[in-house]
Structures are given as structure tokens and as C-alpha cells.
Design a protein around this nucleic acid. Sequence first.
RNA 1: GGAGAGAUGGGUGAGUGGCUUAAACCAGCAGUUUGCUAAACUGCCGUAUGGGUAACUGUACCGGGGGUUCGAAUCCCCCUCUCUCCGCCA
Length: 424
Amino acid sequence: MLTINLIRENPEFVIERLGVKNFDAAAIVNNILTLDRRRRELQSQSDGIQSELNTLSKQIGLMMKNGEKDAAEKAKESVATMKEQQKSYIDELAATEEELKNEIVKLPNLPHASVAPGKTADDNVIVRSGGTVPVLHSDAAPHWDLIKKYDIIDFDLGIKLTGAGFPVYKGKGAKLQRALVNFFLDEGEKAGYREIEPPIMVNKDSGFGTGQLPDKEGQMYHATLDDFYMIPTAEVPVTNIYRDVILDGSELPVRNMAYTPCFRREAGSWGAHVRGLNRLHQFDKVEIVQIAHPDNSYEQLEEMVKHVEGLLVKLGLPYRILRLCGGDISFTSALTYDFEVFSAAQQRWLEVSSTSNFEAFQANRLKCRFKDKGDKQTRLCHTLNGSALALPRIVAAILENFQTPDGIIIPEVLRQYTRFDIID
RNA sequence: GGAGAGAUGGGUGAGUGGCUUAAACCAGCAGUUUGCUAAACUGCCGUAUGGGUAACUGUACCGGGGGUUCGAAUCCCCCUCUCUCCGCCA
């Protein structure tokens, strides 16, 4: 949610920047400005009456005490008239505020100056790439065949237990999964992130705080009996730690990370591009979250990008980093880097991380603020998050890229965690 | 799940309808004093929103939402959460 101050003070700038996201904001912005003027006018009028009422009430108290009954009764009558008038202001004020909020939430976040205009994923900018695509042997297979061959991940069993998209990891498959989680957490700790183990179900307030509710309700699993939602990402609980919190400026940036399972209903298409581990209802992920000072949040974003890139380098996977164009960047993000690894048997790039600066867009909803020493006013923090990393596609890439006729070779950095060096 | 007791500022905690402009203490910040520390003293010490260049000032907020009243932290109703005891339980 954009702040009303920004819209009020720089309406032209807001419209111009949203144009980069192919969003025509002119009509909405104009409507917002009108509603905002009306809202302030109404509040002034209502407050003015309230002020008079407060004074009058005190006077009535004194009159009663002094036994001036008639004067008190007369004053009560004028109170009634004033309250009636105030009610019409208050009713219109509430309606105006409601309408104003409904308009403001329609506006996406402003894209950062470095975001290129563009319509689709084809317009994303490749920032850099690294690693080398392996040359596979002649009967190399995609991961959905490999997992059967080595009996490490079982989709059919998942269907029996739950349904499609809930795989069962077995033996070395389960151990590889656990090794990756531990590797990511240990690397995160070295980079200064505090490990959090959050609830993986959240209440409605948390869903609203990070923006999953009300619009994306259908993407989350909902436990209706208790009105809890299964988290689609650890971003939800970990960022909501800072909902309604005022931090001291010296505490920033705050670096937290969490490993959690993630649950997504993904009511989307199914087909070849979502086969195997490419898209699931339940998957594991290590998420990094920062709460940053607005003055240096982009330095923090670069720090996060370097961290995620370091993980891919250490795993030895071929990767590329994309800066998303205006058309592909999410509603809430100001700047997003996507990380993709090349999965050699599928001959496809798979997204394994999306690392973003939301600036104050999310913080405004969360009411996550800070105060610098000496400042009177609180300011909104900037929030950032990124996957570091999402497991299934990393597993898919490891299986496909490191396959040999003798088995799948485990990356060097994982062997202290797996305690085996080949899946065969 | 049952019974009872509670929810007040960063913390402790007073406040049963107007004398509260939420006391007091602690913590914190600034200053005075001091060779330094400590102590003492003085002042400041919440959030949101409206008006104002600003100083300043109006309004709201005592878990959340309604209600009674000229006037509510205080009385009434609903909800949420916490604590104690009992039951159940990894």
C-alpha cells in the first residue's frame, strides 16, 4: 500500500512511475486526491464539534455541582443538536475513508528507477550469469525419471497419502533434502541472519500484514475451523514479527531467516512445464528477510543478492540473475531479482529464488516503523525478502546436472551433511 | 473441554461516572553539579490524525467491537487473549 503522503505530494511522479508497470493510474490518483481533501475537511469539522462538546460537558458538570439545573438542561439540549450535526460528518467521514482506502490499495508499488519498461518475461534484463552447463551422457534423463530409477522421491505415494503435488522423499532423497536445508541455514548464519522457527499456520491479521489477504485468499490452504492459513512462504510469519512494531533506527537492518515447508494451492495449469518437482503444493524453502533503513535498503538488497548467488556458486549450478522488467515485477515489489538455474536434462531455466525490495509498501500495511535518534516522527521501514533457496527445483537441477551413468554425484559442499557422495 | 481471576504508557502499578490534562515509581533521553564514575537535582519522556512555515495546537486511543450518559479507563453487552485450578495429551 502506497502512503497517502507520497500520492498527495507527488501525484504526477506516481502516475509516471506506474506507467513503467504498464499501469494507468491517472484516474485512480485523481480520485484519491479528491477523496483525501474531503476526508481532511470532514475530520476538521467533526473534531471542531467534538472540541466544543468536550468543553460543554465540563460546563454542565460544573452547573450541576452549583445547582444551576435549568442552565444545565438548556446546555444538554444544544448538545443534542450538535451531536446530530456531528453524526452526519462522522458517517460521511467513515464512508470517505473506506472509499479512499479501497482506491489506494488498487495502486501497485512504484518500480525502482533501475526497472526497465517491458511487457513480459522476455523483457527481463540478465544482470549476470555463472557456472557451466554440463554436457550430459547420451541416456541422461529428466529428474522425474531419475527419482524413480533411484527410488528417492515418490509422487504416487504422496497421492495416496494426500494428493497430487505432495511428494514423499525417501532414503537418500530425504537426506539430500535435509542436507540442503542445513547447508542453507549454516550459510545464512555466516551471513548474519538469525534463525527463526515460526508457526507454519498464521491468523488473518498476519495474512493481511504481508498482503496475501484479502486478494489472494484462494492461493492459501485455509483451516476454516480455527480460521488459520497454511503459510505459502516463511515471509508471512517472519515479516509479521515486525507488525505494529517501532524499532530503534540503530537496530536496522534486522536480518532473519527461516526454514519452513510452504503450501500453495496453485490453482493454475498443469502440464509438461510443471512436471515432477517443478511445481508443488508443499515444498521446503529457506527464506531470508530483512527490515532495513530506507536510506540504505538497496545496499541491503545487493547484500542479499550476493548471498543467494554465493549459494548457487558453492553448489556448482549454472545460474543467471534477472532484473525483472516493469511488466513482470510483482504488484508489491519495487525491484526484484529472479535467480534461475539451468536444468540440463529439461534444457530449461528454473526459478529458484526471487529476491525483492518492497520499500515501504509492505511496511505501510504492517505498520513496521522506526525512529532515528533525535527524530520526532516515526518513519516506515523498508522490507526485503528472498528465497535462499527454494528446495525442489534445486534438487531437480542437482539430479539432472550431476547425473552420470554410475549415479548422481553430490556437490562437494553438501557431503558433510549427506555423509554420502553419490546416489546410485 | 470445565470453573474462576484478569488485560491501564517501554516496565511495575494507582485509578468504581466530572478534582485525571491517566498518579507514582523504575527504565530511557537532555542538562546542572563533578578530575572520572556514581549520586543528587531540573527538564523531557507514547501512537495516529487534522490545522499551522514554525513555535504551537484540535481530536482520538486504557485488549478489540458495540451500547448507556451532557460526560466513560470507570457502568452494560459481545468477542479475543492471558493467568490459576481441574480434565485430556506428545
